[in-house]
Design a protein around this nucleic acid. Structure first.
Lengths: 316, 316
DNA sequence: GCATATCATGAGTTAATATTCATGTAATTA
DNA sequence: TAATTACATGAATATTAACTCATGATATGC
């Protein structure tokens, strides 16, 4: 941006002139002289070194440059005034309703919520958990944190956390059966899997990363969700594949050990999802800003602690 | 916005301060004193009458207001500099590739293209027509104009034209069979329908609007697309249901007459579709701006000429 | 070609912004 | 409690922006 910020009033002039296709009418709308508009546009043109309007033919025409820049200004003004307006209306009354999965709430969100409450004591957070999609209109939810591929038609989504997966088991199990030396040894250990819709893709991906893609997966019990599999691992029932957020740095506190230094990216990631335009309300913006800062921190830790060897075994 | 535009430099300060959570660090980044930042923020706060930062606790915290406004500034700066950068790179070299349906190209777009060429002689427009969806990555297309419901996951879409449908037939047919007096009379006329995937919803909707929802639709030949049905109508073979853009004001030139003053909104509308972020290139922005202005004009004409009685028979 | 409408431009003025400096104040840490 | 760190603030100033005015230049339409 060359250090020189364009004056906002000049952007306002650009926007109006582009919309009207005429400096004179833009001047009328903004209650200034035509000369003012001409000066402003000229200022922008020299600032950016770009022609914004074609003055040769009489009907003033936007150049391609102008056509690209005018909407930038237009959208900015629109969003700014929308945001200011909704901040003034200020409906801080009700609680902020957040929907997420049970496992994310338990392992990641709830332990950190007190920090958010300290920063924003006036915002009352309600958390509801479902493992299924949420309809914002019907369920009366302000924000959702979902596991998925980030494609949510009609909604705005932003990536919160990419997770790594790696196998763990309890120290007891290691004492009883010995520590597996190579990934291929896992064949002799009970593997704890999820059973919903047969989705074992994370195990498949990890086995590929570990170089033993054909290792059979038929051992061990199956569980309704990954939280239960994790509990079973803690109880020494076998080897579970865990995601970074699930253990989040306190492996040893739970009596678990990580097996091998091989990891891969989980097939799905966490996204923050909300209806378009919802950023404009203060409570939602506050929570969004907070959770994005917090997840960025978590992500840094995972990248450092869980997956320090960049590219080693990653297959995204 | 209360007429007072916030100074852009102050927004820059807000953005940096929000990002760093510190006036001092923001000052360092912007190469000014801490005092400058403090003044700027204070200026914004009094301008908007909103608290942006909480200064009580030592770690400076964004208020909910600040959390809502900072991203507005951040996104604006990001988009502005992205746009400027891509305008400077200026890849005006190749042609602008536009994909649309055959009927829209024939009846609406091509007749108007000379106007675009006059305004932007440096932009070489190539049009390709398919009636199926287009994959931007694979088909090497810059922009698409599609008929649909506006939901295009992963793409940006904006409404271009809502169309009305109403029945027409040739003057010859009227001479031969007489003019139908009421919608119910249509039973005695050959109706020209499309045959693809049995989609006769437009006829169904029009019959509902006309008050004869149960009129049978089994007469007449069927055609591959609505263009062929229209040609058949011009040739006097029966009554066709046309969309506004298809006839676009030159009904009588084609020897057609409109039957009844009853219309309804077409089930689908035209959308301009492109990958997110593509607005930043000059050629695409120029075409977008142009076609949005042109369609807005068409829309006005349709609303005035085709559907002057607002709400009469509309069932959207 | 003349009247008209529209944009360009240079000079000059007023108002607002941007910033620094020198201190003051409040919280944090040792 | 002293030292430190970070934000607040009033005064002062340089710089820029935002206009207006008067006039010049260009294209359009009759």
């Amino acid at each position: 941006m060359a250090d020189h910020l364009p004056p906002l009033a000049a952007l306002r002039a650009l926007e109006a002139a582009a919309r009207h296709g005429s400096f004179t009418r833009a001047a009328a709308e903004l209650n200034v002289t035509q000369s003012a508009i001409s000066h402003q546009i000229r200022h922008l043109e020299s600032l950016w070194g770009l022609a914004l309007f074609g003055r040769s033919g009489r009907p003033l025409t936007l150049t391609a440059n102008g056509a690209a820049l005018a909407p930038v200004a237009r959208d900015f003004f629109a969003r700014l005034s929308m945001t200011l307006e909704s901040l003034r209306d200020d409906d801080v009354s009700g609680p902020l309703k957040i929907s997420t999965t049970e496992s994310f709430a338990l392992t990641w969100l709830v332990p950190r919520l007190s920090d958010f409450n300290q920063r924003h004591p006036e915002i009352d957070v309600w958390i509801s958990t479902t493992d299924h999609r949420v309809d914002f209109a019907i369920n009366d939810v302000d924000l959702a944190i979902r596991v998925g591929d980030g494609v949510y038609p009609g909604l705005h989504s932003s990536l919160l956390l990419r997770e790594y997966v790696f196998p763990v088991c309890s120290t007891q199990l290691v004492e009883r059966l010995g520590k597996p030396q190579t990934p291929a040894d896992l064949e002799r250990y009970p593997l704890l899997l999820r059973n919903d819709d047969n989705r074992t893709t994370n195990w498949d991906r990890w086995l590929v990363a570990a170089g033993v893609p054909d290792l059979p997966l038929h051992h061990g019990p199956r569980f309704a969700n990954s939280n239960m599999a994790l509990q079973a691992a803690i109880a020494g029932q076998g080897v579970a594949l865990v995601r970074s957020a699930h253990v989040d740095g306190n492996l040893s506190a739970a009596g678990l050990v990580r097996l091998f230094d091989i990891h891969c990216l989980a097939d799905l990631a966490y996204y923050l999802v909300h209806p378009e335009g919802a950023q404009t309300t203060a409570r939602i913006a506050a929570f969004s800003a907070w959770i994005q800062a917090e997840t960025a921190q978590s992500q840094q830790r995972y990248d450092r602690e869980v997956a320090p060897l960049t590219g080693a075994g990653n297959n995204p």
